[in-house]
Write a protein that binds this DNA or RNA. Structure first.
Lengths: 276, 276
DNA sequence: CCCTTAATGGAATATTTATTCCATTTTAAT
DNA sequence: ATTAAAATGGAATAAATATTCCATTAAGGG
């Protein structure tokens, strides 16, 4: 093992642990490679597993795992596990306990509803992080960074998202026009060459938004879609597609993940335009 | 122990565990009482602690804790701990890993910004669950449920929230008027006896919103505040106050928690009016 | 007050888990 | 091909942890 110094200190934090894991990299013999891969993919189980369990998961004998712990700088598995047991964030069960307490106010009570919608928002945010297509996001940002006026259109449930985009764009000095539907005007003639349209719509998909996206497409104006599914009717009309999963209650869906995406999109675009 | 049957089966899920804990209730002798209290307050540590550690935390000898586990229905501590170790949700580290991956695109990149804003939203949602004053929420719902027209006012960053409220109220057939500031009109004369105003504003606190809240107060119109701090200037003007913590980046703050609160508020009000 | 039952604490015992060590196999270098 | 170094697997050993048992104390009831 030429690239790992035996006198290296044990990682003192979970973050350092991750850095050490990455630092060790690819040049590992077979069994240690298996350990590295399994540990990297199951960091969350270190605190709650035995050597034997983790070794079985990695398909190596326990002694290999011991060795791996020492390569990372720990005296043994127990020292490594201790790091994770102490780092075990108490926040989450507090949150879970709190949710349960809120729900005890009875189904349909304001507190119980809040608990449900908070949890739905949290799940939607996590789903967004996992499902995000980074290339699509980068493509959307590039299109919008290179455009003249940014037109933002979204109605009914999508309207808070479009108004938020308009707000953040203004804050970042990005030329943007909010198509707010006042007077039933769509302002389609404001869509000009070199502009871009951010069209936001979710099932049951607003006719107005689709119509404006169609118009934009016909005028050669780039369309960036924010929508809920890859099968959305907005997709064939768009040059870049951002899909957002939101937890669905039937009558209502969370909107928290979409709001976070909108913020990330607008700030990215504003930054990209700043540096151009 | 007259109220706990020795042949009761061990809880088969974490939820059942919580129910069992609640069921055992208050009629416990001293040391077992201590165990119950400590376990209830430290459920998150069961998976990662030894008998000795938990017993020390509860200030009882290990044998008392063993006894407590058996009263809950488990054969011993190990069976109880197994429940928690197996229930340890693996989802979260996937999410944490994903965030880390997104951030590796480089500071300021769209993907890294998304990761930051998603995490900010998640933290804000958890903070909202923990910080929510249930009585204030119930009070707000009661005021709004008993009002005639619901006026909604929020500008700039608060505007997406107010437009979302207006959307949900319409969907729930609740009479609501969105004060959208078009034409610089505040429509203060639309505030009538028996109405209520939902005023939404965050630092640096919109003059327009504060003025409208002041007007409402002078007219005897109930004011429900959605704001960021208990020290907000909107607070002295309001009859019910909902504060929302949002993670702050300096230039930008998450809005995801506020959106979830708005949804919970609107649905609660709609339901309360339906049943009136 | 006395007797019975329940609660309690701690030590001994049993079980589980982590670690070390060594023989064997594999790999790399000459 | 030979030798040295590295990797490997498994068993023995050590350490940690869970459990049981029993003597003592406390509480409750007649």
């Amino acid at each position: 093992m030429s690239n790992v110094d035996a006198s290296v200190a044990a990682p003192a934090s979970v973050e350092e642990f991750h850095d050490r894991l990455a630092q060790i990299g690819g040049d590992l013999p077979k069994r240690l490679r298996q350990c590295a891969d399994h540990i990297a993919a199951n960091v969350d189980r270190i605190a709650v597993s035995t050597v034997a369990e983790l070794a079985a998961g990695a398909d190596v004998p326990p002694s290999a795992l011991m060795r791996f712990c020492q390569i990372l700088g720990f005296s043994g598995f127990s020292e490594m596990q201790k790091l994770f047991r102490e780092a075990y964030a108490p926040g989450r069960p507090d949150y879970a306990t709190r949710l349960k307490n809120l729900k005890q106010n009875g189904a349909g009570s304001p507190a119980a509803l809040l608990a449900e919608f908070v949890e739905a928002g949290r799940q939607s945010l996590e789903a967004l992080a996992k499902a995000t297509d980074e290339a699509a996001l980068a493509r959307a940002v590039a299109l919008l960074a290179g455009a003249g006026m940014l037109h933002v259109a979204g109605f009914r449930r999508a309207y808070p998202v479009s108004s938020y985009l308009a707000y953040v764009f203004e804050k970042m000095s990005v030329p943007a026009m909010l198509h707010d539907g006042a007077g039933k005007l769509d302002h389609r003639f404001a869509l000009r060459a070199g502009d871009a349209l951010i069209a936001i719509t979710f099932a049951p998909y607003s006719e107005e938004t689709l119509a404006l996206a169609t118009e934009a497409r016909e005028r050669g104006v780039a369309v960036v879609a924010i929508t809920d599914h890859a099968s959305s009717p907005l997709v064939p009309l768009s040059d870049a597609i951002l899909t957002v999963p939101e937890v669905d209650f039937g009558a209502f869906r969370s909107l928290s993940a979409t709001i976070a995406l909108a913020l990330a999109l607008a700030v990215s675009v504003g930054s990209a335009r700043d540096s151009a």
